[in-house]
Lab assay of single mutants.
Amino acid sequence: LETFPLDVLVNTAAEDLPRGVDPSRKENYLSDEDFKAVFGMTRSAFANLPLWKQQNLKKEKGLF
Score class of each variant (00 low, 15 high):
A45F: 11
T3G: 05
K58H: 02
L57M: 13
G20D: 08
V8N: 05
W52P: 07
S31M: 04
E15L: 06
L57C: 05
V38K: 01
Y29E: 03
K53M: 14
V21S: 03
T12H: 09
G20I: 09
V8C: 11
L6H: 04
L9W: 01
F64P: 06
V10E: 05
R19S: 14
T12D: 07
G62I: 01
L51G: 09
F46E: 00
E27K: 02
F35R: 00
R25A: 10
L9N: 02
K36F: 15
A47H: 13
P23I: 08
L51M: 12
L49P: 00
F4M: 07
T3Q: 09
K36D: 12
V21P: 02
F64C: 15
K53L: 15
A37R: 12
M41H: 01
K26H: 03
L63S: 02
R19W: 08
S44E: 15
T12P: 05
V38W: 03
K26M: 15
G62Q: 04
G62E: 04
K26Q: 05
D22H: 05
L17G: 04
W52I: 12
P23M: 06
S31Y: 02
V21T: 04
K53D: 12
L1V: 12
K53I: 14
G20Q: 08
D16Q: 10
E2I: 15
M41V: 05
F64A: 15
E33R: 09
V10H: 06
K58N: 01
S31H: 05
E60Q: 11
P18I: 04
V10G: 02
D22R: 04
E33G: 09
D34S: 05
E15I: 11
F35P: 00
K53H: 13
S24H: 13
G40N: 14
V10R: 13
A47K: 13
D7M: 08
L6R: 05
V38D: 00
T3C: 09
G40L: 08
V8M: 15
N56P: 00
V38R: 01
E60N: 07
K58D: 00
A37S: 13
L6P: 07
P23F: 04
A14P: 14
E33N: 09
L57W: 03
V8K: 09
G20V: 08
A37I: 13
N28K: 10
L51Q: 11
K59V: 11
A13R: 13
F39K: 00
T3F: 13
E2L: 15
A14V: 11
P5N: 05
G62H: 05
M41K: 01
A13T: 10
L30A: 01
A13F: 07
M41D: 00
Q55L: 15
K58I: 07
L30W: 03
L63W: 07
T12K: 12
L57T: 03
P50C: 06
K58M: 06
S44R: 11
S44M: 13
P18D: 04
K61M: 08
E33L: 10
V10Q: 13
P5F: 04
R19E: 15
P23H: 07
E27H: 03
L49D: 00
T42F: 04
A45W: 06
L30H: 01
G20A: 09
W52V: 09
F35V: 00
L6F: 12
A14Y: 10
E2Q: 13
E60S: 10
S31C: 06
Q54R: 11
G62C: 09
L63C: 07
P18S: 05
P5I: 02
G40K: 10
S44K: 13
D22G: 02
P5A: 06
F4T: 03
K61E: 03
Y29W: 12
K61S: 09
N11M: 08
E15S: 12
E60K: 09
A47W: 09
G40I: 02
G62P: 01
L30E: 01
F35W: 03
E60P: 01
K26A: 06
K58Y: 04
T12C: 11
L30V: 04
R25C: 12
E33S: 11
A14C: 14
L1M: 12
N56M: 14
T12V: 15
N56A: 14
V10T: 09
V10L: 14
S24T: 15
L1R: 13
L6T: 04
L17Y: 06
V21C: 05
M41I: 08
R43T: 04
E2D: 12
P5R: 01
K26N: 02
Q54L: 01
A13M: 10
F46P: 00
K36H: 15
R19Q: 13
N28F: 11
L57Y: 05
L51D: 10
E2A: 12
N56I: 13
